[in-house]
Design a protein around this nucleic acid. Structure first.
Lengths: 136, 136
DNA sequence: TTGCATTGAGTGCACGTGCATGTAATCTCT
DNA sequence: AGAGATTACATGCACGTGCACTCAATGCAA
């Protein structure tokens, strides 16, 4: 049932190590370049991107809870991340009228511009790191 | 030269998001299960494993610098991780005679046993998470 | 309506991390 | 041999994270 086959297990382990290596390399490059060139962390960019991609193009706002399901962060980490974005003027927190416990995170104009500016850097890093070493 | 093809870029982005998701899921499960069942973090286990796999089977010791190239941690983080392992009695720091700046990290018997105990948990998580959703 | 469980989001705290720096040992060049 | 550069590892510090908890708002049952 479970996979006691040593060969399978070995390939699984090497797959995992490869995943770790790719993740570390990309995360490191992304954090560095986004950070020093646009003042954004990797997760900050991720959240801005999700907001831009938000279906309601007019408001570009999402519930904190929805964001929480998209980025791989605890709810508390996300709350503080939104706090940082808000302090930087990139998003706004607006109360949700239907459910006054909820908070809409709304992308500001500055937030959109910051995202557009950072996007090429983000894509360039992905292209540079992720395609490295898999020519086939 | 750089890849301005939108379709390629989109697939790269979705590859990256998939990588992020796999990493988060596996890391989270690994940290949780190794932590509560064996008192080890993911990186602690990683270091123990590298020591066990060390070529010199008699001593099973590696230079800090060698370890640094294997695990995806800053040198300072690794230094403190070794400190934690040492405090737990799983490894010992022994001075390197040839180069007295260097430190050998030597696996103790307790460290080996802890690794052997944790290994099945580690492998089980890998098998459970990494194979999820790619049946083909 | 009242009472209680549940949900959404923010917060105190401890901890692991990276960066910059410190210290000691080694190397190099004269 | 002596001076400065470099290397190996440790440490001070700030910061982002997760966990446990808190508070407010909502849903639900009696």
């Amino acid at each position: 049932m479970s996979t006691p086959d040593p060969a399978e297990m070995a390939s699984l382990v090497s797959e995992w190590r490869d995943l770790l290596a790719r993740h570390a390399a990309t995360t490191c490059a992304l954090d560095r370049e986004l950070g020093e060139r646009h003042g954004l962390g990797m997760s900050e960019f991720e959240v801005l991107e999700r907001l831009v991609e938000s279906p309601c193009e007019d408001g570009t706002s999402l519930r904190v809870q929805e964001l929480s399901g998209m980025v791989h962060l605890s709810q508390s980490a996300l709350s503080r991340l939104i706090g940082r974005l808000e302090k930087a003027g990139l998003v706004e927190r607006v109360m949700c009228e239907q459910d006054r416990r909820g908070i809409y995170v709304s992308l500001s104009q500055a937030g959109r511009e910051r995202y557009e500016a950072a996007r090429p850097t983000h894509r360039a890093v992905l292209a540079r790191i992720l395609t490295a070493g898999q020519p086939a």
